[in-house]
Design a protein around this nucleic acid. Structure first.
Lengths: 191, 191
DNA sequence: CGTTAGTTTGAGAGGACTCAAAGTCTGTGG
DNA sequence: CCACAGACTTTGAGTCCTCTCAAACTAACG
């Protein structure tokens, strides 16, 4: 029973082992929902009010740039999702978070998390560690974008996320990789 | 008196107002040094043991990539410096942090910061906020690198850091901007 | 005044882009 | 079961930006 929350804490445990009280309080604030494909978790131009944990399904974070979609990130099972920028800065952001598949989502309101941060030092620490992880990943993406050829970026992406190749149209993958759909197509033709 | 520490807390205050006890404890662990140009704060391939606050001077963080220097960041007066990656992950990193000018540096050992995190919830919170800020900046750099033309990146850099144009050779600025020295030179010739 | 670090200029190549058009898949209604 | 619409993917042609390698110029300093 409670498989999802078990997964949640397993995912968090490498960083900080929460006290039973903290775990209980955190869980008590989280709400589980089944949501359809296309559901918008965080609309473009809004301030993110919840953070989401994906028990099952897939989401993407994207924004419009000169009339085209630019995909910042995909998130799948046992990952968190939300537009990290508006979440952290509490300012509106044009990134939109939405579901690419029917999903089972656990949500936690920002106001409740603030409360948890105040009351539970260990949860604040966990928050710090999670952001740290995010930062390290982003630094990796930055150097990848600068120095790794598009062909290799694609190969790495597929190796790291084999299932997404089936679950996501290529146009979205190319956008995530920072190249055009046409270029990705040619890369695949060569490879 | 204690101008630097005043500046330090002024810089931190937008994020978290530390209690007097936390401030005192934090300061008691920090050590001020005058260090010469070229001094290496964090050698390449090591694990960062201290974080540094620059009272006066200038540092850079860089690594070698295919026999060339790649500059990740500059840090000047009233900024922190250290290779964020090794600092956060506690793993060796090939980024080196060193001084580009004779500088006045305040250092804080990682072990002491851990202690401060444990004992003072408000310092842990401050740490979380500072990383958050770093993350937001890195996300901006990522989208800049992807969508902003080199010419505009240069213009923005100069607008944001006018003094660095005088203090840093152009080759380092081009490296920071993710372009070659030749390209930067041509951009300047056009502009 | 010569050496070295820093900067500019030149020529040519290659990767990725854009716009345009042609295939290919897939699910739904006839 | 087929045909077609709409979404997705590939292919083609031409352009532009930045890169590399090489060489010349400039400035600063002992």
């Amino acid at each position: 029973m409670m498989t999802a929350s078990t997964n949640l804490f397993e995912r968090l445990s490498p960083f900080v082992k929460l006290s039973p009280q903290s775990r209980a309080k955190l869980l008590s604030y989280m709400k589980k929902e089944e949501l359809p494909k296309g559901h918008v978790l965080v609309p473009a131009g809004s301030i993110c009010t919840h953070v989401y944990y994906i028990e099952r399904g897939l989401s993407r974070i994207f924004y419009m740039k000169d009339g085209r979609e630019v995909i910042d990130d995909f998130n799948a099972e046992n990952e968190f999702t939300c537009s990290i920028n508006t979440w952290l800065t509490r300012k509106p952001d044009n990134r939109q978070t939405e579901l690419l598949e029917p999903s089972v989502i656990w949500s936690l309101p920002y106001t409740k998390l603030e409360e948890l941060y105040d009351e539970h030092h260990d949860i604040e620490r966990l928050g710090r560690h999670l952001i740290t992880l995010e930062l390290a990943e982003m630094q990796q993406r930055l150097t990848d974008l600068q120095f790794t050829a598009a062909q290799e970026r694609y190969a790495n992406f597929i190796a790291a996320n084999p299932s997404l190749l089936q679950r996501v149209p290529l146009g979205m993958i190319s956008s995530y990789l920072g190249i055009t759909q046409e270029t990705l197509s040619r890369i695949r033709a060569r490879g």
